[in-house]
Structures are given as C-alpha cells and as structure tokens.
Simulated assay, not measured.
Amino acid sequence: MCAPISELEQEELLEKLEVFKIKGRDKHGRKILRIIGKFFPARLITVEVLKRYLEERVFPKLGKRKFAVLYVHTDVQRGENLPGISGLRSIYDAIPANVKENLEAFYFIHPGLQARLFLATLGRFLFNAGLYGKLKYISRVDFLWEHVKRNEVEIPEFVFDHDEDLEYRPMMDYGLESDHARVYGGAPTMDSPVTTYSMRCIS
C-alpha cells in the first residue's frame, strides 16, 4: 500500500508526470488534450484532487474553443492507472457543461478488448450518448495520422513498441494473448521526471 501524500504533492506529481498536456491540433484545427493513461498514478491521486487539478489547470487552458482528446491507453493497468468506475463517473459529472459541449472528438489509442467491452456496455450508462458518439478507436499509431497532424503531438516510445508487438502478435488486439513477453519501463516515480521516457515527435 502506497503511503499517502499531501494534496499539493499530488497536484505537483500530476504536473511533473505530464499526464495531461495540451499541445498541437488535429486536422480539423482543434486543440488536442493528450492524456497518457500509463502515467496516471491512481494509487497516489485522489478523485477530488484530480477533479480540482482538471478544473484549475487543464480546463481553463482549453478556452472556449472546440477541442479533441487524445487518450493513450497503451499498457494501462486497472489497479495502477485507473480511478475505478465510481471515480470515472464522478470525474465525468464534474466536467463543466461547456467543456463537454466543446469536446468534438475522443481519439482512443490501443483500446484492447476489455476497454471496448466496457465502453460498449457500462460506458453507455456512465457517459452520455453524445460523448460515446465522439469516440474514435485507434488500433495503431499510423492510423492516428489520419486525424492528427504528425508534427503536432508527442507519443511516448513505449506506444510505438506496443505497435511493433501487435504487428507480430495481432491476437493481442483482441485480448487473446498476453503482452507480458515485452518488459516495459516502470511507471514514472516522484524522483524520475517524465523526460526519462523517450518521446517521438514525428515530423
């Protein structure tokens, strides 16, 4: 069990790990809010701190213009990187109405079978139909460039590594084969800045 850290330390950790980053635009000219699921330390961050962080540090930067979310689900572990179903619902309910209205596309990289089933069943009850209709599954990074300009967004190296695994082991796409054969770097720690992850900015 991880020792609790203060609310200020939680916010600083979210900032340091760059779980949420607004940078670049998609091919429709919309700002991109990039979310790296693997970077989110769910065991250390409370739902209330996360909601306040989004309200104070993320949503204001989006302004009043239309935007898109780029969510990277690669290597996400349910117990390590997700706040739980009730937490997700609480976070979604706390999003201001104007932010929900301005969200026009949700690009979901490497969804996997479990994520697809969750969103197709419980997701329809947790989130409104409008959000579900904006969801676009992206099974390979190459397909992302159909929607996002290549030089506009940074993608962590481990995402490309996962793409390579999928080329040789396609059944991983459907949850029929484990991905434990490849050992990825551990999640960022408080002592290791996010820059320890190799990032690619495709030009």
Rank of each mutant, 00 (worst) to 15 (best):
G79H: 07
V49I: 11
I202N: 15
E154A: 04
E55Q: 13
G63P: 10
I36Y: 13
V194N: 14
K31M: 05
I32L: 14
G130K: 01
S192L: 10
L131A: 06
E157A: 08
R57M: 11
C2S: 09
I91V: 13
K16Y: 15
S203P: 15
F160L: 12
F118A: 07
Y168L: 08
G185V: 00
L62I: 00
R25N: 13
R89P: 05
P83W: 00
R30E: 08
L44A: 08
A3I: 15
D75R: 15
D191M: 05
L70D: 03
R34M: 14
V183W: 02
K66G: 12
P156Q: 02
Y53F: 15
F143Q: 06
D26L: 09
N128I: 05
R140W: 04
M1W: 12
E167F: 08
E152S: 09
Y184M: 02
R78W: 07
P188Y: 05
R182F: 00
D163Y: 04
E48Y: 01
G185W: 14
K23L: 03
L122P: 09
A105P: 11
F108D: 07
D191C: 04
L82F: 14
K66F: 12
R65Y: 02
I138W: 02
K136H: 06
L62M: 02
E152F: 00
N81E: 06
E9S: 12
D93M: 04
E157P: 00
E146H: 10
I22M: 02
I202Q: 14
I95S: 13
L126S: 05
L166C: 06
F108V: 06
F160N: 08
R43L: 13
G84C: 02
E167Y: 05
G63A: 00
R140Y: 01
L44D: 06
R52N: 07
I91E: 10
G186T: 14
K38M: 15
P41W: 11
V153A: 00
G37W: 10
L44C: 10
S6L: 12
E7S: 11
Q77V: 10
L103N: 06
P193D: 10
D26E: 03
K100I: 01
Y132H: 07
L17C: 12
K21P: 06
K23F: 01
T196E: 12
K51V: 09
N102D: 00
P188V: 00
M190D: 05
L14C: 06
S178Q: 03
Q10D: 08
Y53V: 00
L50T: 03
L62T: 06
L166K: 08
K66I: 00
V76K: 03
I22D: 11
L131C: 09
R65M: 13
M172S: 13
L103F: 06
W145T: 01
T74G: 08
I95M: 01
R182K: 04
E157L: 08
A115W: 03
M1I: 09
C2R: 13
T195S: 12
V69D: 09
Y132S: 15
S86D: 10
G79M: 13
L131P: 02
F143E: 13
I155S: 09
E12V: 08
G63L: 03
L126E: 00
L88I: 02
I202V: 05
L103I: 03
L135Q: 07
P170Y: 03
W145Y: 11
Q114W: 10
P193E: 05
R150T: 07
